[in-house]
Nucleic acid binder design. Structure first.
Lengths: 164, 164
DNA sequence: ACGCAACTGTTATATCGTTACATATGAATC
DNA sequence: GATTCATATGTAACGATATAACAGTTGCGT
């Protein structure tokens, strides 16, 4: 389907971001169409804001944008939109930051992992083959049913290291 | 040194918790002794509270305990204690919960991973051989310097599954 | 006893997220 | 078209998590 290499849309690699953004947006639209989900104005607006760059955005940053756009005033509007986007795999929450990024891989989120720059807050999405073996082994051994795995690497991207 | 199996102190396995707790506390004391760190009353109190069980505790739960004990009244006291404990590897922050657990492995925290029960909030600590290969490969490829890796599996422990 | 660094006390505030309930809208059916 | 129900939005109030800033205290080497 897509012959680009795995890191083509990596936040920390030069890439055609317009294409990156449009592809993610189109994938979300297709998915909504296919599954009977409603990409309402507020939801689409939040998704677009997240896809503008690979920088993680907080809920309140997004709320400010919604306010400017006249699409809502109170926190619930943005948290509802984010719940929808995250639940359906169109965005991810970066636990480490309490912030959100658009999903650029369409991967099912059991396999998403992130490189999070602590300086510029840009986030690259990686796709894991599987959760770490040690973790699944211990889960298995103790009867723990894993539902979701969070893998986040915090550090400095090349550019931010150069700036420092 | 320690001939016990890797999961002996797993939160989701029956184990001698008194021994588990005392071992962790003693390890912290030794470490402080060795590195010239001060395990002050507030810090020791918070560590003991965290080691009481394998349940993740929020900063404000801990603050309530500190208040009862007359060791402080305002949030900074507990956040400072937690900063100290986390910085020195005596406790971990569970990002998924915004809460804290005592460290029972003394492992350096680049290698810690967690099984987090979303029902009872008990947390088992696992030790990773290494961060997932896909992640380090992508970091390498893009010049991203990884400083810390968070691996957290959320799910249901055996007991909570049985209860449901 | 002195001086410095580390630690603690206190006030205030920033940041992140939810509850609860009222209202509106879309789309299937009568 | 009117009815109905599920889904989505509007709004006010609040709860939970965390930090800033600065003053005061304590431990400890000299």
């Amino acid at each position: 389907m897509n012959h680009a290499s795995a890191f083509d849309m990596d936040a920390f690699r030069p890439h055609d971001h317009g294409r990156c953004r449009r592809a993610a947006r189109a994938a979300a639209e297709r998915e909504c169409q296919a599954r009977g989900l409603r990409l309402t104005p507020a939801r689409a607006f939040v998704l677009d804001a997240l896809l503008e760059s690979h920088r993680a955005m907080t809920a309140y940053e997004l709320l400010d944008r919604l306010r400017e756009a006249g699409l809502g005033k109170q926190p619930p509007i943005v948290y509802r939109a984010l719940d929808f986007l995250v639940a359906n795999g169109f965005a991810h929450r970066v636990e480490r930051l309490g912030a959100f990024v658009g999903c650029v891989h369409g991967a099912d989120d059991h396999r998403a992992a992130f490189l999070v720059c602590r300086s510029c807050r840009q986030v690259a999405e990686a796709v894991l083959e599987a959760p770490p073996a040690a973790l699944t082994a211990q889960a298995e051994a103790t009867g723990f049913a894993v539902e979701r795995v969070t893998v986040e690497a915090e550090g400095l991207c090349e550019r931010c290291r150069a700036d420092a």
